[in-house]
Amino acid sequence: MRERTVLDVQGVTKRFGGLVAVDALSLAVRENEMLGLIGPNGSGKTTVINLISGALRPSEGEIFLGDEMISEWPARAIARAGVARTFQLVRILHSLTVLENVMAGAVFGHKRLWGAAARKFALRQLDRVGMAHAADAPTASLTCIDEKRIELARALASDPDLLLLDEWLAGLNPTEMQIGIALIRSLREEGRTIVLVEHVMDAIRSLCDRCVVMNGGAKIAEGTPEATLADPEVIRAYLGVGHA
């Protein structure tokens, strides 16, 4: 069975001045697939997320969402076209309540609901991430996992065709980590299309269908998690020469 390609990144390069952050990277994400994007620190993963979501524009290459070329689009247009993301450093809207944070996704994203419908849909997403009890709470005294869950619910509330999670599991303690992994697994079982940037190898192994490994801005390996994580070049990238 061949599934539709949701995201197609073709030969994308991003330069900052003289620094090449992403170097002629190509990758494709199929519908219902969970793709892990991994690599050591500074290998350009977050830059790729920023390029896909429109926070940055590629210096070269093209990005397609379905049939549309989105690489020149502003972030807001890409969001409306159906790409939702979370941020490496969680970004909660602090003067809004928890429910309003999630409603923001339902109202303005891909889905564009309003009024009672938006409220209902947002509540469902909050429930989905296990935060329905806190709907009317202010955002001041939330724990790290709660903030991450709210941000995830906000992304889900736009009912995205493609979800980008930028180190969503980072900073969680071991118990929270278990909750977090279970939550992402349930998203996968729902059949969502997700790109997951992650450092937590257990999560990558147990969650992803496929992995793309980056180092120095370029793709050095691609395949199933087991195969890529055993690749000598990947081990070298993570641990340095001599360990392979």
Binding site: S53, G54, A55, P74, A75, R76, A77, A79, R80, A84, R85, F87, R91, L93, H94, S95, L96, A104, G105, F108, G109, H110, R112, R154, S158
Partner: peptide, 10 residues
């Protein structure tokens, strides 16, 4: 609150 989030929400 946060213009970056606003942009990424559409």
């Amino acid at each position: 609150n946060d213009e970056t989030v606003a942009a990424h929400l559409g």
